[in-house]
Write a protein that binds this DNA or RNA. Structure first.
Lengths: 214, 214, 214, 214
DNA sequence: TATGAATGAGTTTTCATTCAT
DNA sequence: GATGAATGAAAACTCATTCAT
């Protein structure tokens, strides 16, 4: 069903998430997949190629829905989707965030890709914020406030796994916590119009329930 | 003036901050200090011992002032000190945050220390928040809100260097940004009483000026 | 027009001349030709087979004219042709001389072929010399002098590319220099009869012009 | 008696001369010396460092006497020493010449050193020739003739081992042949004054005897 | 003829750690 | 306290060659 290249990517992802990308040798990946080291190098020139391939897949999954967001109209952005839907993707590719600094330091091409992606995201999220402010879903914010909200959101989305991991929560609990981390970051900025909106109204309850029941 | 052990710690810190702890070999440290590798091992059993020693020094510097905080009285916590004074210590030991996940993965004793420290900090900061709420400096918050404010604050304090580094800001700009990251995280929760307080009144202006002038 | 085997030989020659035979992997050849590595091995059992095939072609081109030399009569041997005509062939297959020692060390069958060829050439050139001496085109030389003239000529023909390459001359300059290297090696042995001969008379001028104009 | 570094250099030289530098792995050197591969790298960062160290020793031995040459006076240059004394050094370090092209291609720092050395030698030998011409030991030669005599001498000195190796002569015979190769290259240019000189008079006989008796 | 996945031994290099002096 | 030689496991990567299709 899966071909060798796919198997390498799958196992790499597993190993990266459990042992870390830096701490996973190419030999270990090959062994786990059940192929020779030579065959590993037949498919990937080096570990960075795997890393980039996995990162591109991550991006594709993350932005599959975001791209379809139509925030031209007077409409609140899909906060629920943003908080919940991406969560599983973030967990699936959690090594990316957990090792971000190391990856950036060790893989120069990956660094360039990450930097470009970050710049795009900043522009995208900033303009989304401005739109939401214009339509009264988010309280008025200065340029600086938007800049630092965006950076804080990125930082929290990137690093909250590490925090909960340190407290020995398991992966499902971490998922639930992660959504609330982001929710409480944005909550102070939501207007009454937002809080009355169907998409937001019960969100806190849903997230808590999600967090308590599962 | 400095003994050998001290020199090792100083040079290790330098190297960890520039090249990363994981990417710095013990041999490189010994060479930089100007001692033999054998002598290095006379003072430190392994790199983890250096790491822990540096981390303890970091903690001591960070909590030197915090420990003296007397938040029994009706008094706003020293936000300015918290935002600015610690900043240089954070920068001085920045490798700790930049490589947090890697360090935790590779050094089990360090991990335990970090975890214990984190639990202490959560209790400490949570009770500080409750105290501030009680005295009307911070708006009323639920248990959950406090929990996630505390976690977000830790995450942001821990990882914002990475964010600004990716955008190619230099170390001094990163310092300035870092203070604002934390300020804008707490700002929505400050009451009018806080905003009128001498310690807070001009803080935004001061931070921006700090950020723009330096 | 060209079949696959021919393409492999052509591309091998190109790669051997630019990167060296030892430094060119079979995979690189296959890739350059645009065929699979499996197909490469269909045509050639290993790199030595290519090497030998190329060497035989080189020999054929070099001795195409020499074989037709009729040096039975009282006639000076075709010095001009020897110096100029072979030059392009030598350049075309220059990797053979540049890597001679390595090739001999790594490819035992090639070594045998080279050795047999060398012995033939020694006999051939020695008897040519004796003939030229007999007819007064070359000054009388002892057995030893002939032996060492022949060896020096072979050595210079084989290795002069390396010398000029070290001095960073480009391929066309090297060609020109190579002719003069051989000319000045033989010049002291030419008799007046030689120097008056039409084939030789203006040779020095021609070679220098060739060397200066091109 | 010999320390480890010296042993590595000695064994490297042996292996380079027998199997070739390119074909000798660092692991093979370590094994031959009887040390671990780690210990090998303690002494030499890579193979190029060994190569350069050996080359510098070769140069030192070769030019030990040449440097003392005083060719200011009306005196023939020490042809006998040049032909015989250096011979053993050339043999001792024969891999350098045998693999010259490959070494130059694979070791960039070595290439630079070789190029600088070659340029120095060209100047040195050219001025020596001019001096000998001035004092009547060598027949008058044009600039071009000197240039090509110098290059031919270098090429022959560099590559004659390969020639005699191909003909399966043993190392001692090769040594003797090598002297005669150079002698017969220079012989046509010697004046009667040279040939009558004590240093030269019996040189041919000596060399032949050397070649026949040993 | 042609493909290309697969093998595995081999290469260079790094590094934490030990230990006799 | 201090030296530095020595170890050996492990990392990334290469490459000639085979073989089923």
């Amino acid at each position: 069903m899966f071909n060798t290249k796919e198997k390498i990517l799958q196992k790499s992802l597993e190993l990266f998430n459990t042992k870390g990308c830096i701490n996973t040798s190419n030999r270990a990946i090959a062994k786990e997949v059940g192929i020779s080291i030579g065959n590993f190098y037949y498919y990937f020139k080096n570990k960075e190629e795997i890393l980039i391939e996995l990162f591109l897949r991550y991006l594709e999954k993350i932005f599959k829905d975001v791209i379809n967001l139509n925030y031209e109209k007077d409409e609140i952005f899909l906060l629920k989707q943003f908080l919940l839907d991406n969560l599983e993707v973030e967990i699936e590719y959690r090594f990316i965030h957990l090792e971000m600094d190391q990856l950036v330091n060790n893989f120069p091409t990956f660094k360039k890709i990450i930097q470009e992606q970050l710049k795009k995201e900043i522009i995208m999220v900033s303009s989304l914020m401005e739109h939401q402010i214009k339509h009264g879903y988010i309280i008025p914010l200065s340029k600086e406030e938007i800049e630092f909200f965006v950076s804080n959101m990125w930082i929290v989305a990137c690093s909250n796994f590490m925090y909960w991991n340190l407290l020995d929560f398991d992966i499902y609990e971490v998922m639930k916590k992660a959504a609330l981390n982001k929710f409480y970051l944005i909550k102070p900025y939501l207007t009454q119009k937002s809080l009355d909106n169907e998409n937001v109204k019960d969100l806190e309850k849903i997230l808590k329930a999600y967090y308590e029941n599962k």
